[in-house]
Design a protein around this nucleic acid. Structure first.
Lengths: 185, 185
DNA sequence: CTAAATTTTCAGAATATCCTGAAAATTCGG
DNA sequence: CCGAATTTTCAGGATATTCTGAAAATTTAG
């Protein structure tokens, strides 16, 4: 690869980790490379940097685009698309979570709901209970997620930093919220 | 398979979804089967229920055990191990998240820290900045996660349900917490 | 200790995924 | 239009993963 050691290792690492997630090595490498490059890169530059085939890059970029993880731009007098990742890392995380939810959670939720509506069969009430329980849990988690997702980045970061006080907050939320109202008034 | 339609479809679904996560089909099926079965099952029963080889079941169970996702028990006058999943689904989710963090996040965090300490190289300060930024974000997320993890299940569920009030809470946390102190006193 | 019951290991077959080069398709300046 | 630049598609080879049966290892009752 035609890049610095730092970039090389960064890209390598995301290639390897890629496999532990659902994505394949080259897709991970492409994203890492775009993430760490200041200037947008075109497909040919990616080919050169990663020493992989042009068609592989094409497929990788398509995959990343289907995840809404890329921004494209153009240069004057150059027909080629130039790719980069969003600057705001929190935005990237949001997108990642949203897409994973869509692909990995939502189908399961549908299936569980469907199974829950079935006429009771020989599986017995234990199985049915377990399915409802799981459906309920997943709903709680996704509801919580969409609440978090609605917060703008600023507040989200604050929330993360709050951390340790969350436990205290939970026990008395209702009162706290009402206190806050009074305070504002 | 020798089971009801409900169980069959549930197990099938987790087999298919398994591939979208990092786990393979049979491991997903085994877990789904154990999850939905009221009584613990031994390896042979899993073989029969899923029509897969004994050795595959053995490997699958080992894999699940390495994730701390199983409980084992014995029956009198029977040498075989019987397997089941924890009753408490929240406990299962905790384990899952903890294990995924260990395997998918922690190695990346180490690598990023290592790269951050490197002498500046030709990658330039943009790349270095991007690495720090990513390291910082992942640290925030994992810190937030460990705060949540410390909450017991009861409060966690409350927190999930609170959801929409989180945004309000964030803006005035400091005051709220101090108000709460006074209230208690 | 012996032997039956049970589990684990592992080489190689079966399957699935990834990657490439060549060819087809698209885009766009002239 | 034409044709050069660029991108995409896709069949098949290359790799990687999963699964199996047979054999080895382990466990435990007697």
């Amino acid at each position: 690869m035609q890049t610095s050691d730092l970039t090389y290792e960064f890209v390598q690492h995301f290639g390897e980790m890629g496999s532990r997630w659902g994505i394949n090595r080259t897709v991970g490498q492409i994203y890492a490379l775009l993430f760490i490059s200041e200037e947008p890169l075109c497909a040919d530059e990616i080919v050169e940097a990663l020493s992989i085939s042009r068609s592989n890059v094409s497929m990788g970029l398509k995959e990343l685009q289907s995840w809404n993880l890329l921004r494209t731009s153009r240069k004057p007098d150059d027909r080629r698309d130039y790719f980069t990742t969003p600057e705001d890392m929190w935005a990237i995380v949001r997108t990642l979570v949203a897409e994973r939810k869509k692909r990995e959670i939502d189908p399961t939720l549908s299936k569980l709901r469907e199974l829950e509506l079935r006429a009771p069969d020989s599986a017995g009430s234990y199985a049915q209970g377990r399915i409802s329980e799981m459906r309920g849990l997943i709903e709680s988690l996704t509801d919580f997620y969409s609440d978090l997702d609605r917060l703008e980045t600023e507040r989200l970061i604050q929330l993360m930093k709050m951390g340790k006080t969350l436990g205290k907050l939970v026990s008395g939320t209702a009162q706290l919220v009402s206190l806050k109202q009074k305070e504002k008034a």
